[in-house]
Amino acid sequence: MNDLVPVSLLVNGVRYDAAIRPWRTLLEVLRETLALTGTKRSCGEGQCGACTVLIDGRAVNACLYLAVEAQGKEIQTIEGPAAGDPVLAQIQRSFATKGAIQCGFCTPGMVIAARALLAERAQPSEDEIRAALVGHLCRCTGYVQIIEAIQDAAGALARDAAPVAARVGS
């Protein structure tokens, strides 16, 4: 049990060096070794999306991803500084104001999924939003307010990007 391997991970712009067992998942290493517990452990087998993080901008299930595989890549978790990422900050605000958060256990994964979606499509349709959430379970909300929050975030970001004159009346 002492066959540890060194890993060097870049998480939210911070480099972490650690010695881990080679079969540890990224989820386990984030939560247990790096004490970044914002990423949630639920099903542990790729079915619920609660553990979603961004790796090089792509949403992945950290419970299915070996930590050693994540070396040399940029990992972004829910703890990522929202100040440096206005899109993330807007998504978080919209989730709050639209009532998309109940127990909050799915929320970090949902927010990260929304972040990946809006990076790909700034103005997704309702169906595109649903499709982007298909790997994410939420038992509390029934999804309606989550979809509305993502629509709201996309709208708010578009307004922010628009010239001031075009914003009058919005």
């Binding site: 517990t37 990423t39 703890e79």
Partner: peptide, 23 residues
């Protein structure tokens, strides 16, 4: 009045501590 949940931002930013987060 529609009122934002008190813990919404803590939950949206991964700061809410659940039992499995305790060390």
């Amino acid at each position: 009045r529609p009122t934002v949940k008190k813990d919404a931002l803590a939950k949206a930013s991964g700061r809410a501590e659940y039992a499995d987060d305790i060390a």
